[in-house]
Simulated assay, not measured.
Amino acid sequence: MRRFPLRTLLLMTLALVAFVRLYFITHRAGRQAERPTSARTEPVVIETTPRSMDAGSPASAQACRTLDRTLEGAIRAPSDASASSKARQQLDACPEPPARACELGAALDARSPLDTGTTPLRELLDALCQRCPAGTNPCAGYVTRAVMGLGVGRPAEFANVRWHLEHAGPGTPAACAEVVHSLLAPAALATAPLAAPQKELLAQLAPACARAGQLPANILHAVVVQGDVPALAQLVQEKPAGENAVLKPSRTVGPQDAEKAFDGQESTGVELTLATPPTERWEKDGALSAVFEPPVHQLTALRVRAKGPGTLRAAVRTSEGLGMNDPDSQTSFVLPVACRFRGTGQWETCTLPASLLDVEALSVFPDKGKLTLSEVAARGAR
């Protein structure tokens, strides 16, 4: 058998490799040529956020920029109808007046007092209050200053305060927050009643805040139960209590066997006396306190059987900063008198003009030296 030289075999191998490589390159190029190159498409973004036709437009920006000067012109010439009309047109073209323009609300009020009736300047003040934001709203600021000033003895024109609250627009929540903090919550405290002018102003302002949904129901109910501002009773909108069961406290604070006053047994009881001197927690806990954890959703009825007169106060949990503060639990509360009993030794029913909401404790305070508390019966919904 004839053998091929090694050199010939190597040449044949190289030729075969070259053929295979050439075949692969030519066929791959053909396939790429047949495949069309897809065009790169960019995603289409559709803007769906509605845009105001006036917001950010050059006309509205110009109206806002010079609004304060136009208002000052109307204030300097209150009888000039054209100046007031120009100011109103420019105000209507400005979606949110700048702070300097909002500050002119006080001047508009001074140049057009409420008792002069509806004037162009008064209408300008109304329109300004409807557009100025809460932080610079002239009507809300007027209400806040009047309420705070009344607390330090500075008199206020009640009708004018009410007008400003009713026209506060975006500033209504801020104005009502001050009403709640300085007037409504203190009116639900048995220990520090409001002065007569504060009660009168609260009676005039509360309806406007109630219509705006800015009166906390639990504090409003507590004020009605306290009874120092009778006009507020018409603002209460009672809701069905659902279940109406006997309420048992989670724990009691007070003398030994304090729980016997809530055990449902008339034959048992506990002796209560005044603390002399009062302890740090006397103002809230009294001689005996029944604590509900969590607070009772709705307290609808109370009965007391005792020998010796006294009062029953309800601690109503509130938002932080409203009413009094409990340093131990770091919570806030108001403390209306829920019941005054004579202590005849028989059952006495405490009539609640409104249900109490979010009750965290019921505390007993003897009116005189001591009393024997046989039983406290509370009913409501957890």
Results as ranks from 00 to 15, higher is better:
G151M: 03
G171V: 05
G269Y: 06
P295R: 14
G321Y: 08
L9A: 13
V246A: 10
A146L: 00
W163I: 01
A314H: 11
H181E: 14
T70A: 06
D367M: 06
G105W: 09
R342C: 00
A127N: 11
K86P: 02
W347I: 09
G149K: 15
L335N: 14
E243W: 02
E103T: 07
L165G: 02
A206C: 06
G310I: 08
L10T: 15
L183P: 10
G345I: 01
S329K: 14
P98L: 10
P309H: 12
K239L: 11
R211S: 13
A195T: 09
G105Y: 03
E348C: 04
G321S: 05
T349Q: 15
W282F: 10
V229M: 01
E280W: 05
A378Q: 11
E42A: 04
L371Y: 05
E293G: 01
T41F: 01
P120E: 09
D54S: 09
G264Y: 06
P295S: 12
F262W: 14
G286P: 09
R145C: 00
S319I: 00
A93F: 04
S38L: 04
K307Q: 12
A156S: 14
R145I: 03
C64F: 13
E293F: 00
T8E: 15
E123G: 02
M148T: 09
Q90I: 07
E375Y: 04
L71D: 13
V364W: 12
V337H: 02
A231V: 03
R35Q: 10
G30P: 01
D263C: 00
E320A: 01
D358F: 00
N137R: 08
R162V: 12
G117I: 11
L373R: 08
R40C: 01
L9H: 11
D115F: 03
S267L: 07
G310S: 08
L11Q: 11
D68N: 10
A29R: 15
P230Y: 08
T331S: 07
W282L: 04
G171F: 03
P327T: 12
T41M: 02
A361K: 12
L22A: 12
G369N: 14
R281V: 08
A156K: 04
V304N: 10
D92K: 10
R317H: 15
G264F: 01
V179W: 14
A287E: 08
K248A: 04
E348T: 09
G153A: 03
